[in-house]
Amino acid sequence: MGGLIKSSIARKVAMALSGLFLVFFLLQHFTINFTSIFSADVFNELSHFMGTNPLVQFALQPVLIFGVVFHFVMGFVLELKNRNARAVKYAKYSGGANASWVSRNMIYSGLVILAFLGLHFYDFWIPEMVHKYVEFAPEDPTRYYPELLHRFESPVRTGLYVVSFVFLALHLWHGFASSFQSVGFNNKYSVAATKFAKAFSIIIPLGFIVIAIILHLTH
């Protein structure tokens, strides 16, 4: 078990598992966001539950933050190690001849997503934390939908969200299906699982884009 900590395969499996965990979170986030385009009341109710339930706030939220931080930190560590594994670069390297652009540039799509998370935290998470745990403002269960609309007022911010979701799709396109291989899942169900992962990586980010545009137009 000791060798597991520093083993390349263990790191790869850890990346895959944290990525799969974030995929589940993404699905949950999408489901709540999706309600906002057809019912402000349902969105308010779900947001109020997520924002006030102690299990979500003090158990699931820290786990999620750990998952996000771990995935990014491990991603950077692996990228540095991988760059170090080829100290002298090729004068000519035809990476596109044998691997997709997306699979070779996960670090860049990941960096865009990291920058987006900074914006997203600035927009929603930090004000939410200040509202609840710094100002101790009284809870209004109907505040969530108007706040959401207000954030998507700006076309620039909406545009930034849309671009970020495109990079999220690129990251998922390789990462989700790749995680199956990393955990050793390669059997007769692999083709179907890969198709599901590819479909997910398009449908969910596209859904986020549609929601962002609808909210912008609604305002």
Partner: peptide, 11 residues
Amino acid sequence: EGFGNCTNTGA
């Protein structure tokens, strides 16, 4: 030996 980590590019 100092080989890098696999990222499943398939190259």
